[in-house]
């Protein structure tokens, strides 16, 4: 059933280029309760789940359409970055889950992103997303949206591939 919802979302994006651009350039708005991008009463964990599903769907849609849409091809590196950061987000915290989630919510929430009991699928796609984003960073000079990035920005992105958030944090284990 979740797969059907993701297909409907991809079809919806196909007819709304402005929304597609917004999800590629401003996905953080989905986490911001003040933005109205999602219903205001939604808790942080549900916002993350929907962001993760949207980032994954946008990536898949752009990858499918990139061969025939040069504009989509240009957006792919940004979509790859968002997908990796969104899917890996709950695994970046030393305490075990994001600070604004409820206690012991990590397992419950990460099992739901791609439908019930889909925790293994989340981990699989997070690793796939890490490899895809790493490949773009490895060839950043070939991609217009990355080629002019400052060296320290690229260093931060490389660090985020391998490490959790914060100083002296451990490896990002997916």
């Amino acid at each position: 059933e979740f797969d059907q919802a993701a297909t409907r979302l991809a079809d919806y994006l196909h007819t709304r280029p402005g929304l597609l651009r917004a999800l590629v350039h401003s996905p953080h708005l989905l986490l911001d309760p003040q933005s109205d991008a999602l219903p205001g009463h939604w808790p942080p964990a549900r916002r993350w789940r929907v962001l993760a599903a949207c980032a994954d769907t946008v990536w898949a849609y752009l990858e499918r359409t990139a061969p025939t849409h040069s504009h989509h091809r240009r957006l792919l590196p940004l979509a790859a970055r968002s997908r990796f950061l969104a899917l890996s987000y709950p695994f970046r915290f030393r305490a075990g889950s994001p600070p604004d989630w409820g206690k012991d919510e990590l397992t419950r929430q990460t099992e739901l992103v791609f439908g019930r009991n889909s925790g293994a699928e989340l981990v699989r796609r997070a690793n796939e997303a890490r490899q895809a984003w790493a490949a773009y960073l490895d060839t950043y000079q070939s991609h217009p949206v990355l080629a002019e990035a400052a060296s320290h920005d690229l260093e931060e992105e490389v660090a985020a591939l391998a490490f959790r958030a914060g100083p002296r944090s451990g490896p990002l284990v997916l």
């Binding site: 059933e1 979740f2 402005g18 929304l19 350039h25 708005l29 989905l30 991008a37 219903p39």
Partner: peptide
């Protein structure tokens, strides 16, 4: 632009779409 992004993400049918996604996740 940021304003255009905000406008695109606040359309009523977008809210209906994401509500459906969240429901199917649970």
């Amino acid at each position: 632009s940021p304003d255009a992004d905000r406008a695109a993400l606040t359309a009523p049918d977008w809210h209906a779409m994401v509500a459906c996604v969240a429901e199917e996740q649970e």
